[in-house]
Design a protein around this nucleic acid. Sequence first.
DNA 1: ATAGTATATGAGCATGTGTTCATATACTAT
DNA 2: ATAGTATATGAACACATGCTCATATACTAT
Lengths: 102, 102
Amino acid sequence: MKQQEHHFLLPATVDEASRIFKALGDPTRIKILYLLSQEECSVSHITEVLELTQSAVSHQLSFLRNLRLVKFRREGNTFYYTFDDEHVITILNQVLTHIECD
Amino acid sequence: MKQQEHHFLLPATVDEASRIFKALGDPTRIKILYLLSQEECSVSHITEVLELTQSAVSHQLSFLRNLRLVKFRREGNTFYYTFDDEHVITILNQVLTHIECD
DNA sequence: ATAGTATATGAGCATGTGTTCATATACTAT
DNA sequence: ATAGTATATGAACACATGCTCATATACTAT
């Protein structure tokens, strides 16, 4: 066994990374984030475009909001969501591009 | 609501992406992959360095093997693991760097 | 006020995940 | 052959996850 020095990660770093990856580790959330990476969307628009229930979308948006990956603005009854973490969108697009270009 | 055309993702693309992100979405697997990104390691070395049980490490390596994110070679009783997906390691390091440099 | 619309939220449930414990396998050394 | 070492694997269990269903909230229109 080699006797190198390792560079160790801080527990907080590992936790934060796993939280980000976990957020991206679900097909529904990937679709939502990918949609939001293209344009600002209302909840009902996401619901229609992705053919999901309103509740499922709303729960996932709540999840993404807690992680500060998306934000929203209100206009009357309509909530418009946009992504709120450029870096995570970049990572997502890198992976998607990598897969599609296989 | 805007009436743009969306670029849609293939279901297979979404699935593959979520599988990759899910693999990275666990602290133990992040630590293992990060270690392997630095050097080839035996199972027992991983076990000691990360202070995990042998079984937990072995199960996670099996998981990572199935996704072809790691590979191993055998030398007697000892199994040496290395990463097997440069792109995934790159993504992992990007996210880790981004977090640490906050 | 009343009804309608858009979204959020809580409970419940089925399924997935990560661990431990016990045991199997495969090799090495005596 | 036998004991020891390194790793893999299956079962079981606690906990997390993502959905649906029902309902709450907050605004709009009449």
